[in-house]
Design a protein around this nucleic acid. Structure first.
Length: 1049
RNA sequence: GGGCGUGUAGCUCAGUUGGUUAGAGCGCGUCCCUGAUAAGGACGAGGUCCCUGGUUCGACUCCAGGCACGCCCA
């Protein structure tokens, strides 16, 4: 006996009679927890499927994106578990780095780095970071739990743990020993609030490039060589006036053409192409006195606009150099270069043997080198700089522009480029191998391999791995403090540190490791650790090693768990985690870190805009799950193309649709089964595969076979959005064809052989369907599965292997023809205004030549039943109501006839064909083509005005002749509907016996039939005596029906 | 400016090695309760497959060039 099923399940709101999906989910969650289903599912035998979970920062609450990615990870893991793998899922936390430091600064009200170093102390600061990281897990856990994600949260790896950090040191040392790590003084993106350099990835984080208003100035530099005997100036354009203090050279494009423009007694040199654009500099009427090739200007000298480094002139500074970064897109075609503050500038000067002058300190303020602005922040100094330029006459133009400008991805401070010491990872050295091993990765969607990721690898540049900060794994390099000694020592393990320091360490953070002072083996002077910590991407990239404390522990485990079989993250990680995993894996092991990588897309608000908490343009996912349940949310997301890196405009209605389209029909099918199974005391056996001879059974099993293969394929290839279409299609087939057609088979008394076949089939179909749905809708699938099978959980079941014997494409096609006939018949009825309840004499059918006409006989009952007609026959003379239409198989005839095939197709479509034996002759004027019968399909198309309809080559004519007998049957059917309706509204049970009065003119035979159907005996009931009465006029005859429930005898 | 992706019904999206009548769901219109299912069902209307050119007997599909949008970067 199955637990009784409420037939009405509520999608939302409190329904008195039925459970709600969210309620079911809470119940299931409790059971999973209590019975440790997740833990059990990990104990399965079989090969492991290795999954790496990308660690989020434990700041704030999870957002829509993290929920989505969790659903994807969960669905895949559930599928692979059912497919026979053990899929350990270990959570991870990215605990270090600027995001955490910034949160702590904010909490403590810390304004700058010196406060941490001088007042608070590094140890106290790091302790605050530690505390913050420890608190944040609760919000995440409730979300992750609610969406049904199974993940080992309790044993999460954390990048701040001692073993993890030790592995990171080891990874660093491996790279260092390979010569992949070096220190260099060069220009890097720099945040003067965080007082650290950043990597190129940092400034490419999604939110880092933001609009900013900056001054736009054009200044003039006095040229040493006069043109036309007049004072001559080079013009240069910049949006960072403060860098003019440190200008050391000007750059031009050697291939560009430069104009000398005379104005007000002076001559100005700028790119010819831009003269018109800046005509206003020359009173609107530029007068060009001479044209130079850029190459002619090279090596010429000029005078700086500020005096601070003037004395460098003799050393070859303040010259015109050629550079390919000069463009004619904006500016004036002459670029002012301050090698301390521009990357291009830096490399240009370096190539020409010119040094750097950097008068900006770590806080982004001018040093004493620039006495006028010393102590001023560079951005704030812009105003004064411009004022000074104006005073000296150098300023030619000044306005404000808004442009996109890089900002610190965590503290939102505008970045500057600044020359400084930093540690680099020589990505360039291993670029070839990075590209080679990318070929081994299966990317989903495929285009990422040679698109985003491949292109990013091709353009990869050396990676700034050092941060001048506190909260991170310290860079384990000790340098001799003696000037010029240059000794370095790298410690790559706790043992090495112990040996060097003479004591144990239980924490490797900066405040502890900085205490370790070594003695220089070369000169005997102290060696101190370099101050920087590692970029947190280095740590998350080292996750395969760090999570298992490789190589200090778990060596065997590591070897069987590297590389990952699959990973899943959002597109931002193409330049982030995916990239750094790849870099470190290739550097250390010369192979890719993961075999399959699913890159999912972005969820946008309904209006297509970014999801934004401040705009409140979306509903909190928790609220959605409370309303509709997590299954519906999961189905919506998993079925969308957002799975494969497309954007999705998220609509709440989309979640609700899943209930209507998937969950409720499923529930109803289940409820149908249980209702009748309980009547017949049928108990399904999950191990039994049905062996039915009934065409409907074989048909639904053929559909099931097909669905299982499509769903399995979708999961195996990681295109899991393709896994749901076959499921919904199957549910549609099951409910609106199989069950609908099979109802009568379940009605009769007793468990007949045919009924047993029907039960076996429906049971097997339902159980299998729930397995197909289990990875995507784990709650409902488990709830129903348990009721059907009594087993612990669908998630412990193995993925269904629907046997080949159920495969039957021919039956599927044949049934499709019957479905077409039914659809056409219903359409014709509708057109004629004849409701299905009115029986009709028959339909006549013409089938295309490709269809075996036996289909009509085999599907006869279904067609008659659905269309309520007495006969289904083949049209004797289709030509009378329809035109012959021939559709050649162009795929075959094309190659055979070439150009002529178009004429053949045209003639054939026009019906210009005749049959000659097993050949078909297509003709057009004098021309004739002989075509093999199997290469052309003959069908009929209804003539206009005739009462026929056609679709997919099937033609159908409806005989609408109404005999008195048919009319009488129609009336009886109407009355039956009225009676059944009365019973239902009166609240009777299906089996209740009743007394009934039926007043009105009706054939006595039908009268008796109706009584039988209604379980009624005929008595005279006045309206007052009856429980319910209906009066209706049918075909001009007035009827009264009154019913009363019989009391139990 | 470059790279990658997308462009198919009012909306969200399918569309299999190119084959001649391009599909689904939602929405819309009309209709339907014969006992699993109205929180359903049937039927219907709705398309310049972004544009231009090319390849081909034949292009939504392949190629080139545009246009629009998104993401990433300069």
């Amino acid at each position: 006996m199955y637990p009784p099923v409420s037939s009405s399940v509520s999608a939302e709101g409190g329904s008195a009679s039925g459970g709600k999906f969210p309620e079911i989910e809470r119940e299931i969650l409790a059971r999973w927890k209590q019975n440790k289903i997740f833990e059990q599912s990990l104990q399965r035998s079989g090969r492991e499927m290795v999954f790496y979970d990308g660690p989020p920062f434990p700041t704030g609450a999870p957002h829509f994106g993290t929920i989505f990615v969790s659903i994807l990870k969960d669905a895949l893991a559930r599928y692979f578990t059912m497919a026979g793998y053990s899929v350990p899922r270990r959570w991870g936390w990215d605990c270090h780095g600027l995001p955490i430091e910034n949160a702590v600064e904010k909490k403590l009200g810390i304004g700058d780095k010196t406060q941490i170093e001088k007042q608070l102390g590094v140890a106290a600061f790091n302790n605050e970071c530690r505390k913050l990281v420890a608190d944040c897990n609760v919000a995440w856990e409730s979300y992750i739990n609610k969406i049904g994600r199974w993940v080992d949260y309790a044993h999460a790896y954390r990048t701040l743990d001692l073993p993890y950090m030790e592995s990171v040191l080891w990874v660093f040392k491996q790279c260092y020993d390979q010569g992949l790590i070096y220190k260099d003084y060069r220009v890097t993106p720099y945040c003067y609030h965080c007082e650290t350099s950043l990597s190129f990835s940092d400034i490419r984080e999604s939110d880092s490039t933001r609009p900013r208003q900056d001054p736009e100035v054009i200044v003039r530099f006095k040229a040493s060589d006069e043109v036309a005997g007049k004072p001559t100036w080079y013009l240069a354009w910049t949006t960072t006036p403060w860098t003019l203090t440190s200008n050391l050279v000007l750059a031009v494009g050697a291939d560009f053409s430069y104009a000398a423009v005379e104005h007000a007694g002076s001559v100005y040199i700028m790119a010819e192409a831009l003269v018109t654009k800046w005509a206003k500099l020359f009173g609107g009427k530029p007068y060009i006195v001479k044209i130079f090739a850029g190459s002619e200007l090279l090596g010429r000298h000029y005078e700086p606009v500020f005096p601070y480094y003037r004395d460098l002139g003799a050393e070859g500074y303040f010259r015109i150099l050629a550079a390919d970064f000069v463009t004619l897109d904006d500016g004036v075609g002459v670029v002012h270069c301050a090698p301390a503050f521009g990357e291009d500038d830096y490399w240009l000067c370096k190539r020409h043997g010119l040094g750097v002058r950097n008068p900006v300190d770590a806080r982004g303020c001018f040093t004493a080198d620039i006495p006028e602005f010393a102590g001023q922040n560079v951005h704030e100094a812009n105003k004064g700089v411009i004022r000074a330029l104006k005073a000296s006459g150098a300023l030619m133009h000044h306005s404000t522009i808004e442009h996109n400008y890089p900002h610190c991805w965590r503290c939102r401070t505008p970045l500057i480029y600044r020359a400084m010491d930093a540690w680099y990872f020589a990505v360039d050295k291993i670029k070839d191998r990075l590209l080679k091993h990318n070929e081994e990765i299966n990317w989903v969607p495929e285009h990422v391999k040679h698109g985003r990721f491949g292109k990013w690898l091709e353009g990869a540049r050396d990676w700034n791995i050092s941060r001048s900060r506190f909260w991170g794994t310290p860079i384990p390099v000790w340098e001799c403090e003696a000037a010029g000694c240059g000794q370095r020592h790298v410690l790559g393990s706790l043992a090495e540190i112990k040996a060097a320091a003479g004591r144990e360490f239980t924490d490797l953070h900066k405040e502890f490791l900085d205490e370790v002072v070594l003695k220089c083996p070369a000169c005997g002077k102290p060696m101190r650790r370099v101050p920087e910590v590692l970029d947190c991407w280095f740590e998350s990239g080292a996750m395969p090693f760090g999570q298992c404390h490789y190589p200090f522990e778990n060596k065997d485990w590591f070897e069987s768990h590297f590389p990952a079989d699959f990973i899943v993250e959002y597109p931002g990680q193409i330049r982030g985690w995916f990239y750094y995993l790849h870099v470190l894996a290739v550097a250390l092991l010369d192979r890719a870190a993961f075999k399959n990588c699913l890159v999912h897309g972005t969820l946008l608000a309904e209006d297509g805009g970014k999801i934004s908490k401040s705009k409140k343009n979306f509903t909190d996912p928790m609220e959605l799950m409370d309303r509709y349940g997590a299954d519906a949310l999961r189905l919506y997301l998993l079925g969308s193309s957002a799975v494969v890196m497309e954007d999705l405009n998220f609509k709440n209605a989309g979640v609700h649709d899943q209930i209507k389209q998937v969950l409720l029909p499923l529930w109803n099918a289940f409820s149908f089964f249980v209702t009748y199974a309980n009547v017949d005391s049928y108990a399904g056996d999950p191990a039994r595969q049905p062996e039915s001879t009934h065409a409907l059974d074989r048909w639904i099993l053929a559909k099931l076979y097909r669905a299982e293969h499509e769903v399995g394929e979708a999961f195996k290839t990681f295109y899991l959005n393709r896994s749901l279409t076959p499921v919904t299609a199957f549910i549609e087939d099951l409910t609106n064809w199989y069950i609908r057609q099979s109802r009568a088979r379940f009605w009769g008394g007793g468990l007949t052989p045919d009924k047993r076949q029907a039960y076996d089939t429906l049971y097997y179909a339902l159980v299998t369907l729930l397995k197909l749905l289990a990875p995507s809708a784990p709650f409902v699938a488990d709830y129903l599965y348990r009721q059907l099978t009594g087993e612990d959980s669908v998630h412990m079941a193995t993925w269904p292997d629907v046997p080949d014997t159920y495969r039957n494409e021919a039956l599927i096609e044949e049934t499709a023809v019957a479905q077409t006939i039914v659809t056409l018949g219903l359409a014709l009825r509708q057109k004629a205004g004849l409701r299905v309840r009115q029986p009709l004499p028959g339909i006549q059918v013409a089938l295309p030549s490709s269809v075996d006409s036996g289909v009509v006989a085999r599907q006869l009952d279904i067609i008659r039943n659905e269309l309520n007609v007495k006969t289904v026959t083949l049209l004797a003379d289709p030509g009378a109501v329809a035109t012959l239409r021939a559709t050649p198989n162009a795929r075959v005839l094309g190659p055979k006839w070439g150009r002529e095939v178009q004429a053949i197709i045209k003639a054939a479509k026009a019906g210009q064909v005749r049959e000659e034996g097993d050949k078909i002759i297509v003709f057009e004027g004098q021309k004739e083509w002989t075509v093999d019968r199997q290469d052309i399909e003959l069908s009929y198309q209804g003539k206009d005005g005739m009462d026929v309809m056609g679709d997919k080559g099937v033609l159908l004519a409806l005989d609408k002749t109404l005999t008195p007998a048919l009319r009488e049957e129609g009336v009886a059917n109407e009355l039956n509907r009225i009676i059944q309706d009365l019973r239902k509204t009166a609240g009777y049970a299906v089996s209740d016996r009743i007394e009934m009065t039926l007043e009105g003119e009706l054939d006595p035979a039908w009268r008796g039939h109706l009584q039988q159907l209604a379980l009624a005996v005929s008595v005279e009931l006045s309206e007052a005596e009856a429980d319910a009465t209906a009066r209706e006029t049918i075909e001009g005859r007035a009827f009264r029906v009154s019913i009363r429930k019989m009391t139990q005898a």
